[in-house]
């Protein structure tokens, strides 16, 4: 029931909340900081300044109104589809994993992975943009082949916590997963 502070791969602070509902059910929530008002101001101002300078030369008011629409629509799209506030992983032994992410607008996307489709949960390394990072992922069982891996589902995709945080979640997950199998 405690909140722990970690950082993500670019050094921004995030918090990890571990909740142990029972011995075989645990929930991990990674929360990123909210959208800062400063960032919103900077983006809005820059769009409007550009629009105003274009308006200054063209004397076309459509530019200004389109700038307003662009900022409003952009902001809505951003909070609805891009900005994730919380990502949570609910591990229920013998049942499965529930992965959900809550967007800044309140929209929630949830997926569930059955336990008998999961082969394991591992920490893996990958090249992401111009960095090499660790990430937590679920290995999916290949139905045709007992030892094969048919796919990989990465967890905490948008918050991207660092290794120290991943290790904590990983160990805790393994305790539950190994107990029920």
């Amino acid at each position: 029931m405690e909140d722990e502070a970690f950082t993500d791969i670019s050094g921004k602070p995030i918090t990890l909340d571990c909740q142990s509902h029972s011995s075989f059910c645990r929930e991990f929530t990674v929360s990123s900081p909210k959208v800062s008002i400063g960032k919103v101001m900077v983006y809005t101002c820059s769009v409007w300044l550009v629009a105003y300078s274009v308006f200054f030369f063209t004397q076309n008011t459509a530019v200004l109104s389109s700038a307003i629409i662009v900022t409003l629509v952009g902001m809505m799209l951003y909070i609805h589809f891009v900005k994730v506030d919380h990502e949570s992983l609910l591990v229920i032994g013998s049942l499965g994993l529930q992965v959900s992410s809550t967007y800044a607008s309140g929209r929630e996307v949830t997926t569930f992975i059955e336990m008998d489709k999961i082969r394991d949960i591992v920490i893996n390394e990958a090249i992401y943009m111009h960095q090499i990072i660790y990430y937590l992922c679920v290995l999916m069982k290949d139905q045709s082949e007992p030892n094969g891996v048919s796919g990989v589902v990465p967890l905490f995709q948008s918050s991207k916590p660092r290794l120290s945080c991943l290790v904590k979640v990983y160990k805790s997950c393994q305790e539950v997963v190994s107990r029920c199998q």
Partner: peptide, 21 residues
């Protein structure tokens, strides 16, 4: 084991348990 998998010692213990099941 598969070369793409991460090789953490803790994980391995869990892995062997999975396989013995």
């Amino acid at each position: 084991r598969s070369e793409t998998e991460s090789k953490r010692a803790t994980k391995q213990a869990a892995e062997t348990k999975t396989q013995t099941q």
